[in-house]
Amino acid sequence: MKISKNALLPQFERQTDYFDYFSGSEVPDVQQLQDKRLKAGLQKTYLLETVDGGNAGGGPSLAEIFQRSEIRIDELSGDDGVHALYAPSGERVAVLEEVDSRYLALYTLLPSVESDKLVKDAVAANPFLDHLWLSSQSFLTLWTQVLRDNNNKRYGKITFEHESIYETHEGDEEYFQDERRTSRFTMVDKLEVISQKMDPLSQEYAPLASITQLRIPAQGRGGHDLYYDGKLTNRSSSFLDHRATVRGVVDLYRALTKRVEEQLWVSASGPHGIADGNFGSIAEIVFSKTLPEDLFKRWVISLFNNRRNRFRVTGYPTWLSDRKVHANAIDQHLWQPLVLEMTPERVIAVLPHGTCGNSINRLVSNIQRFVDPKVTAYIGDQEYGALIQGVAV
């Protein structure tokens, strides 16, 4: 992987020096980018989930976890839990902060094309790492917080995106092979205007139910662009404000994931009377309308024939009919087993006690973006969106 030399980090030994550096004039803000006075890329943060490391828990240390991705980290002097991070090629390209024992923040100045690839490759090769996955329901909870904490005359930004990558055209498939519906719509307006228009638009056009990006306003100018896979771009003039936003997002996500896990572990049946017996808890994904048969088949084939699929699931499907698939599967994050029953109407997942809630967040957010924007999810007898609404913001 090619590394932009002007985005490499200085060889500081203390974490305070790096945080001062990110706050200083060496790091370009949006105005400098517009004036073409670019020395490095905008500061970006990638939020990651891992497992509790250290010898006390018996799991791998953080250094051992990243070594699986051919990435070296060295702890910096100062507060515990802040590390210099080196790309596989050996350059110091990021600072890694342990927000807590489960969630990490990776700060970098690399251009997005390079930083996205670095993080994506690190996660894909590592069962102990995963992105934070923000569903539309999570974004709506954050949106409520944005409206509460800011003057409604401030400008905001929200992006809706749905890409029908599994659809095909009837008839001449070769002729249409490069065509598919890709809907991406960004609203930039006053907060009060966006708030008035969001719901009517999503009711009118289904892809606008899939939120993939939200700008969280900064205390001063600009804001922090949050993406559905846990990436944040700092478009403010303050790294301290950005870091506070990072912690706010992690706080909400932690609370949501905890609620999902608690509901998973205590649930006894799904909303349609599907008992979990002795196998585990039930998560059910119900499509807003029956999927076309060709879309359903392409999705299932892609899911189990591509080891690096978007859903991070692998397994062995059994086609019980053209419209029903049973699969003994593995979640590639933490190698957790699950049983899937898939039809064009719904997906039922039987999950063992102790399943990571991030697996549910990933499944829901990716189905919204690539399969059905208006999908409804249930954890046992509770609707997924209701669990999120109960999270304090």
Rank of each mutant, 00 (worst) to 15 (best):
L295V: 12
A87W: 00
D225C: 02
M1H: 01
H169E: 11
I282L: 06
S359V: 11
D149S: 15
V364S: 10
A209N: 10
R14W: 12
L201V: 00
V30T: 11
K153V: 14
M187L: 12
S267C: 04
P10Y: 08
E174R: 13
D178T: 09
A392Y: 05
V119Y: 06
D381K: 14
V95Q: 08
D20L: 08
G270V: 08
T376F: 09
I301N: 10
R323K: 13
R221L: 04
V246N: 14
A122D: 02
V113F: 15
W143R: 12
Q368M: 01
P28I: 12
L96A: 04
P127Q: 06
P352S: 06
A87L: 01
F296K: 00
A386N: 10
E383K: 01
E161H: 08
H131A: 03
N6Y: 07
R362G: 00
R307H: 13
G315I: 11
E174H: 12
P207A: 08
N305K: 12
S202L: 07
L42E: 02
T144Y: 12
L252D: 06
L140Q: 14
T290Q: 14
E75N: 00
D149E: 14
Y384V: 01
E91P: 13
M1C: 11
F22K: 02
M187A: 03
D100E: 00
L8W: 03
R184H: 05
L264M: 04
V286D: 02
S195V: 03
F296Q: 04
C356F: 00
P317N: 03
T290C: 03
S281D: 00
T16C: 15
E284F: 05
D381Y: 06
V193G: 05
R72W: 01
L110T: 01
K153S: 13
R362W: 05
E383W: 03
L291Y: 03
R298S: 10
A255G: 02
A377Q: 03
D149N: 15
V82H: 09
R37S: 09
R243M: 14
F128P: 02
R254G: 00
S195E: 15
E284M: 09
S115K: 04
V193C: 03
F12L: 01
G57S: 15
F185M: 14
D121T: 13
R259N: 05
S135E: 07
A275P: 07
A327Y: 11
N150H: 11
S25P: 13
Q43H: 08
D172L: 10
N152F: 01
R14C: 03
Q368T: 05
S302A: 13
I3F: 06
E49P: 15
I216V: 05
S236T: 04
A218F: 06
I282Q: 14
L208G: 01
S77R: 15
E26W: 04
E167F: 07
G222N: 07
P28T: 10
H326T: 11
Y228Q: 04
N361K: 06
W335G: 08
T355S: 05
Q332A: 13
L191W: 01
I282M: 09
I379G: 03
F304S: 09
E91A: 10
F279S: 12
A84H: 06
T343D: 00
